[in-house]
């Protein structure tokens, strides 16, 4: 996993900084909504092959997965990896009654993915002055998807992890951009860098 081929050091730093800001905003929005503290990791930026992407998102055992596509000035997909641990506490924060039914769990996962991915994307788009629209999230199982048959060889991914303080819950959000969007992104970054 390297970024040299796709982004210059300056571009990378700039993107990292923008991600930091937008993820922070996302975490704040979520914290405000569910009234609890949320921690975020330093965003990781990398260029990956489909196999690398697969091992990246499936390295965690006991997880739920969702995916969601976004369209607009930049296009791509967001995959969310939601830990099974601590989901009950999050359910309680979202005002679900315990015990959670299977459909409750699905709804919580989809809603969490939508909130976090949406907040991240909105933040990033605002920072870069790009317009994007997120489509509805769907449940996803990476083991059933055939990553080897994906129509691309390299993709820029941005990953950030959210933790909720009161429980062992954590969630990773992985953005993947297509090639055209990558050009658009580097162009915008260059404009920002002046």
């Amino acid at each position: 996993m390297s970024t040299e081929s796709v982004l210059t050091a300056d571009q990378r730093d700039a993107l990292q900084e923008l991600m930091n800001i937008s993820m922070g905003q996302a975490a704040n929005s979520l914290a405000h909504l569910i009234e609890t503290k949320i921690g975020i990791s330093i965003p990781k930026i990398a260029s990956v092959t489909p196999e690398q992407l697969f091992s990246m998102i499936s390295e965690q055992a006991d997880a739920y997965y969702t995916r969601q596509s976004f369209l607009g000035d930049i296009q791509g997909e967001v995959m969310s990896v939601v830990s099974q641990q601590g989901l009950c506490e999050v359910g309680a924060l979202l005002e679900y009654d315990a015990p959670l039914s299977q459909t409750d769990i699905q709804e919580i996962i989809l809603e969490l993915s939508n909130i976090l991915a949406g907040a991240c994307l909105a933040g990033l788009s605002a920072q870069l002055a790009l317009g994007t629209n997120l489509n509805m999230p769907t449940l996803f199982s990476p083991r059933k998807a055939n990553f080897e048959e994906f129509q691309w060889s390299n993709s820029l991914v941005m990953e950030v992890q959210f933790d909720i303080e009161i429980s062992s819950f954590s969630m990773r959000v992985v953005f993947c951009l297509d090639d055209a969007s990558l050009d658009r992104l580097t162009q915008t970054l260059d404009e920002l860098l002046g």
């Binding site: 909504l33 979202l94 005002e95 459909t103 709804e107 989809l110 909130i115 907040a119």
Partner: peptide, 21 residues
């Protein structure tokens, strides 16, 4: 109420599906 609140707070769409609700 919860979903609408989330939309106002986050200024971001919220979705619900027949499979779950």
């Amino acid at each position: 109420t919860r979903r609408i609140k989330s939309v106002f707070v986050l200024q971001h769409p919220s979705f619900s599906y027949w499979e779950q609700r």
